[in-house]
Structures are given as C-alpha cells and as structure tokens.
C-alpha cells in the first residue's frame, strides 16, 4: 500500500523502535556437555510507525518470531534497545513492565493452542479483562459479545468451545481477545499461516477494519510477501536474524535490493484475486 497517509504517519515518532537488538540461544549437543550458540537476532534496527500496518517477512528460522517475542516482552534480548512510546524498556523489571503488557498484544500462529480449550468463546475474551480487572463481572459478558460482533463472530456462539470453531473463527476469536485490552500495538505472529486463501483474505480485511476503527498499529509477521503486500504500509525483510531490507511496501516490492527479498518475491502466490473477491464480498 504505502499510501500518503501512511507516509505522513511515518513522520511521527515510531511507536516502537529497536536499536542493535541481539538474541542468542544456547543449544546443547546431544550426549555431550558442549553447547553452541544460535544467533536468532543480530543487530536488529527496526521501527513500527504508529497507526500503520507494518509487515515483517522472511523465511522460516529467520528470527521473525524471536523479534516478535522480544517486542511483546515475552523474552529479554541479550543486547540492544527496545523503545516503546518513548521509553527504553529492554531492561525494565517484570514489575515495571506489567502495566505496559496490555498495550502490546500478540496473536499466535496456532489458534487451537492459543485458546484455552477449557474455556468457552466468551470466557476466552473475558480472560484478559478479568486478569486486568478492568470491568465488573456483569459487564464482562456484554463486552465479550460486543467484541465477538466486532470481529465478525456471532454472539450466539458465546458458549461454544474453541474446539467447535473453524481455524478462521478461532483466529477471529484470538484477535477479539487481543483487542479486548485496547492495545496500542497488535502483533500477529504468522497468524494467517495454515488458513486457506479466502480465510486469510477475510482476516486481513478484518485487520484493516480494526486498524481504521481503532487507530490500531499492527505488526504482521509472515513468510508470504504476496500476502502482506496487499495490506501493509511498510515492509521489513528478515534473513538469518538481520533486517536486510525495509521501507514502504511499494518501494520494497518495486525495487528489491537484497537477494532474499528477490527470492521471496519470486515465490509470490496469486492471492490478489482471492483478496479482491473477499473484499468485495465483505467479511465471511
């Protein structure tokens, strides 16, 4: 996309920014005391503009999910800085981070695993509100039904188990749970993988609607450049733990500089037709 509005917003200070971010994992050799380090993130400089949809693309194992975990404060980086809303938060204690957590919400790839199977759809949405004790018990169910409606799920399904929902419906439910706390930043970590093209397009439409309605900043992580090219304002390409290319979507798609971006573009699938069809048909 890379619209003018997005370009204007990009001039504002970044909502989230990393500088020289590094993360390594120690892997032990089987049947040995020896271990070796795997560099998941290497000197990552990355920015997320407020109110924009930024896409992070790369092949499997390129470090996208590790970066998402660090941004969502699930993991501490080994080095570098993470700035969020003007504060450097990478060295903050868990206690200090606690009030910030609701502002950054993560939607996982595995929608079945991401939703507690013991809870009903409504209870899953109520869960973060209950944890934060933001609303009275009576108001929780009404709020859950509102959110279900907002993400295109019938409120009549409030008592259904997540196991009784399809993959796309589960992902909608996960998004409803994530936006329940009114976050500033929504991170979708490969959340569209495993869904069919039509459902992917429908979820993307939902994200665009939510972004517009709530002035939400979205970080969409995917290995599919064709998918994110349809909706993202900005794109960053990751390869072997590094950001190898970034810029407005139009710029990156039109004149890819790094061979990895070229490889991802070469494997582009024809999503546009499905996307346009779904866009014309509204939410499914």
């Amino acid at each position: 996309m890379g619209t003018e509005a997005a370009a204007t917003r990009a001039l504002q200070p970044a909502l989230m920014r990393t500088r020289g971010l590094g993360k390594r994992y120690l892997q032990r050799t089987p049947f040995s005391q020896q271990s070796f380090a795997i560099a998941a993130l290497v000197n990552v400089d990355f920015e997320i503009a407020p109110g924009c949809l930024t896409a992070l693309v790369g092949e499997s194992g390129s470090g996208k999910s590790t970066l998402a975990s660090c941004l969502a404060m699930m993991e501490k980086p080994d080095s570098g800085e993470i700035w969020f809303e003007g504060n450097e938060i990478s060295h903050w204690s868990k206690r200090k981070l606690a009030p910030l957590r609701p502002k950054i919400q993560l939607v996982f790839q595995d929608s079945a695993g991401a939703l507690d199977p013991r809870f009903s759809a409504a209870q899953i949405i109520e869960e973060p509100l209950e944890i934060q004790r933001r609303e009275s018990r009576q108001a929780l169910r009404a709020r859950a039904r509102e959110l279900m409606e907002e993400v295109g799920l019938s409120p009549d399904w409030a008592n259904r188990s997540p196991l009784q929902l399809s993959g796309g419906q589960r992902q909608r439910l996960a998004i409803a749970r994530a936006i329940a706390l009114k976050p500033s930043l929504l991170i979708l970590d490969e959340s569209l993988s495993g869904l069919d093209l039509s459902t992917q397009a429908q979820i993307l439409n939902l994200l665009l609607d939510l972004k517009a309605a709530r002035s939400l900043t979205v970080l969409l992580i995917s290995h599919d450049l064709s998918l994110v090219g349809q909706v993202a304002d900005f794109v960053a390409v990751m390869h072997q733990g590094r950001i190898v290319e970034s810029g407005s979507t139009r710029q990156v798609l039109a004149s890819a500089q790094h061979p990895q971006t070229g490889k991802l573009l070469a494997s582009v699938r024809v999503l546009e037709a499905a996307f346009q069809t779904a866009r014309a048909g509204g939410r499914g």
């Binding site: 969502a72 699930m74 957590r101 950054i104 996982f108 991401a114 973060p128 944890i131 749970r177 706390l181």
Partner: peptide
C-alpha cells in the same frame, strides 16, 4: 509452553495466578 499460557502472560497476569489458576488446571 502452550501459546494460551504465553497469551495469558501477555495480558499481564501475575506469576502465582498464572501458575496455579491457569497452568495447573490445564
């Protein structure tokens, strides 16, 4: 390790509540 526990962490749940009210029943 389950994503729904990670999600609960992301919602800002306290450690004891996460362990005994969410993870243990699961």
């Amino acid at each position: 390790q389950a994503p729904f526990i990670q999600a609960a962490r992301g919602h800002g749940i306290g450690r004891s509540r996460l362990l005994f009210c969410y993870a243990l029943p699961a």
